[in-house]
Design a protein around this nucleic acid. Structure first.
Lengths: 117, 117
DNA sequence: CCGAGTAGTTCTATTTTGTAGAACTACTAC
DNA sequence: GTAGTAGTTCTACAAAATAGAACTACTCGG
């Protein structure tokens, strides 16, 4: 029973990166993707902590990749988006859309002008 | 010096409500607006705590409304979006847009199909 | 095989956000 | 002045975000 019914901000970003990579995303690559896509630098610890939470909530699944024998280093852990992760993304987008709906940020900040007109 | 350069998820929602109400928003009304717009119920404490934080970061400003003499109760505290609040909203939107860019949630979750094709 | 190098993941600790609801304030109406 | 009403503040705690050091598991050269 998660107390929070909505995705946190960073959770949303990480989940989107997982979705974009279509099952081929793993910690370090997701981090790179996020940095390149939106200029947001996150430490690797932040990425994994978020991934853990998303997995605990059932929004992503992970599997160990086998060693390719083509490079040094530990084997990768790949993440994919689950059904409910997909739903969560859709819900987040819809909620934000409805909050943005009809909003014009270039208009003056206060309602004064509107009332006088 | 804020450590976090991005808006939290709920901060974003509250800031959007403030923007929508164009300077005429106050605690209770913002709460109602959020509930109606996106079905997200938040306690009044959550709203005010977030509003305080947004004000501390300079994203909103507040002013006391004078009593209208038309109703009982304490006077309202109105919130408006500041310049940097406007910027923060734009940045959040842009970042999320770039993460969503080109993503199709209806496609299969894994890349298998793509590689075989 | 053994050390060095590399790619990647876990762990530990702390700050910032998010959540909840009870308590309080200031007003109006009777 | 007591009750009712609209609104805000306070207190306490849970969850998410952040940071970076430590660790793991592999490859390669000798």
């Amino acid at each position: 029973m998660p107390k929070r019914k909505f995705l946190g901000e960073f959770e949303q970003v990480v989940l989107l990166a997982v979705a974009q990579m279509r099952g081929a995303g793993y910690g370090t690559a997701l981090r790179r993707d996020i940095r390149e896509r939106c200029g947001r630098s996150a430490t690797i610890g932040a990425i994994y902590a978020t991934l853990e939470r998303l997995e605990a909530k059932g929004f992503v699944t992970s599997r160990e990749g086998e060693s390719t024998g083509e490079r040094g280093g530990r084997s990768r852990r790949y993440f994919s988006l689950s059904e409910s992760g997909t739903d969560a993304l859709r819900r987040s987008r819809d909620m934000l859309d409805s909050m943005w709906d009809g909003l014009d940020l270039d208009a003056p900040a206060d309602s004064e002008g509107l009332e006088v007109a």
